[in-house]
Computed example of a mutant assay.
Amino acid sequence: MPSNVEIKASVRDHSYLMQRAKELSASDGTDIHQEDTFFKVPRGRLKLRDFLNGSGQLIFYERPDKDGPKLSSYSISPTNDPQGLGRVLSDALGKLGQVKKKRRLYMVGQTRVHIDCVEGLGNFMELEVVMKENQTTEEGVAIAHQLMQDLGVKEEDLIEGAYMDLLLAEAQQNGCK
């Protein structure tokens, strides 16, 4: 199963982060609009990513819910019918919720730097160090830590879990179901 080392953090200075990501990647990045629908599963997370252009991906992943760099193992299958697949999965498993985001993707070496605007939550940054064959988790963690420093991400900005978790927690706190 492929894996990556990832971190997620709140964004303090969006303009600075965008500029640093642009400099480090030597590119303007790529804009991606996504709707991720999460389904109820007994372990890990299962989400259907809809790129809103008739294509999508079914993604299963497992990772610990802790802040800081963590290893995530995943499986991805493309689909040309994300809406139809979403209906089937909702009927079979039940829907946990949906995350809508605008994402700017920058590639820095083997790392995907995502700068996200998440509907209902705000601005976040995510690093995904895509692990190479025979590369150790420690090497991936070191790359993530170096990029955090290069991008100005502070330890206190790190968050645990997924955007879906944050949205569910906020809904519960506000008395929504």
Rank of each mutant, 00 (worst) to 15 (best):
G84E: 12
M164L: 15
F60Q: 02
G97Y: 02
P69T: 05
S72D: 13
L166E: 09
M125R: 04
E6Y: 08
D36C: 00
Q19C: 05
G161D: 01
T137L: 05
Q146A: 08
L121E: 07
V118W: 00
F38H: 02
V129Q: 07
M148P: 03
F39V: 08
G56P: 10
G29M: 11
V41I: 14
K95T: 07
L46F: 03
P64V: 11
L24N: 07
E138S: 13
N123S: 12
L158Q: 14
V99M: 08
L167S: 11
T136H: 13
M18G: 00
D67I: 00
D67F: 01
P64I: 09
L89E: 08
C117R: 07
G56R: 07
S77L: 13
K47L: 11
V141D: 05
E35R: 11
K66N: 12
G44Y: 04
V11H: 08
Q149H: 06
K100E: 10
A26N: 09
K102C: 05
T111N: 01
I159S: 01
L96M: 04
V108M: 07
G122A: 11
K132V: 08
D165S: 06
T37Y: 00
L121K: 06
G140W: 10
E160F: 07
K102Q: 12
L52F: 05
H145W: 03
T136C: 13
K154N: 06
G44P: 02
E138L: 07
S27P: 10
S90T: 15
D81H: 09
K40E: 08
Q146E: 13
F38N: 02
I159A: 03
L147A: 02
A169F: 00
A171M: 15
R49G: 07
G86M: 12
E156Y: 13
T137Y: 06
L58Q: 05
E119P: 05
S10V: 10
R12Y: 07
G56M: 10
G152P: 09
F60N: 01
A162G: 09
K102G: 08
K177D: 14
D36M: 04
E6G: 01
L48Y: 00
V99K: 06
V99N: 04
K154H: 11
H14L: 15
T111V: 09
F60H: 03
A142Y: 07
F51D: 12
L85H: 07
I7K: 01
G97R: 03
D36V: 00
E6H: 02
Y74D: 03
G161L: 00
P69W: 00
R104P: 11
Q135F: 10
G94D: 12
G140T: 09
Q98N: 05
L166G: 08
K100C: 09
L52Q: 15
G54F: 08
D81G: 10
C117H: 01
H14P: 12
S27E: 09
R12H: 12
A171G: 15
A21T: 06
D31V: 12
L151S: 02
E160H: 10
I59V: 14
P78F: 08
Q34R: 03
T30M: 10
L17A: 05
Q83Y: 07
R112T: 03
V130T: 13
H114F: 15
L89V: 11
V129I: 15
N123M: 07
N80G: 13
R112M: 02
Q57P: 03
L17C: 06
E170K: 15
S75C: 03
C117S: 09
M1G: 00
M107Q: 12
K8R: 05
I159Q: 04
R63G: 02
